[in-house]
Amino acid sequence: MKQTLGEKLFDACNTIMLILVCLVMLYPVLFVFGRSVMTDLDRAAHPFAIWPTAWDISGYKYVFSSGSYIVNAYAITILRTIAGTFCNMLFTAALAFVLSNRDYPLRGAFTMLIAFTMWFGGGLIPMFLLVKSLGLYNHFAVLILPGLISAWNMLILRNFFMQIPQGVIESAKMDGASELVIFLRIILPLSTAALATISLFYAVGHWNSWFDAMIYVNDRDLWPVQVFLREIIHNTNLNDMIRSDAVVEVNPPAQSVIMATIVVTTLPILCVYPFLQRYFVKGITVGSIKG
């Protein structure tokens, strides 16, 4: 079927629109990346440039001069992201599946109990006391367990599962398959897009989290990268009047440090993401069917 003029116009406009969107999105990111390697004077002289006239990596040197701590912290972050996301998905998918069965008798009660926790909670102090009494304080598991299942993510996943055509499930049941088999061999394979999405949400959550580590972990060897990087940003940013007199702060430019920090934290995620896109292939191929 040939395209009408209207459709061709639409395609052209769409493409231009999307390119514009990209430029608007891209600029600030390039801004941060490019200016992280500029000298302070350069930045001051060219407020909107994104390419340095002279390269200056002192910001990165400062960030990595924390020596073994940053490298170790990266290991913690990566470990936490992988192990954490895996545990998250295991439990979240299981629960989402259970609650997607419309004839499961406890479905309503469980869903309400879970949804309730999305709005009401005891607060920081009781959580802190709980973590201490469970022996999780200062233990790697505290980076994973308290956030094991996100009610929000779980409900989204549940609704994806609920949209799988009942017919497939019915015929499997008639063949005598147990729920476990239905889960593993029908639901999961049909939900790769949803699973990848929710995994991404969890993974990014783990990668960016710092508050739980800051509250529940006091051993610097167990701190993920974000805690250190925040520390660096705030240390250089604060007009620190509390100093032992003779210690002269010879920091590299605050801006360099802050931007280097941002690059160091977001670059890995930006690099990994395209590989996850394989799982979104369906969405991409669907749209490319010529009409």
Binding site: H139, A141, L145
Partner: peptide, 9 residues
């Protein structure tokens, strides 16, 4: 992993 966390208590 879970038990490891709890044994500390």
């Amino acid at each position: 992993a879970v038990l490891g966390g709890c044994s500390g208590s």
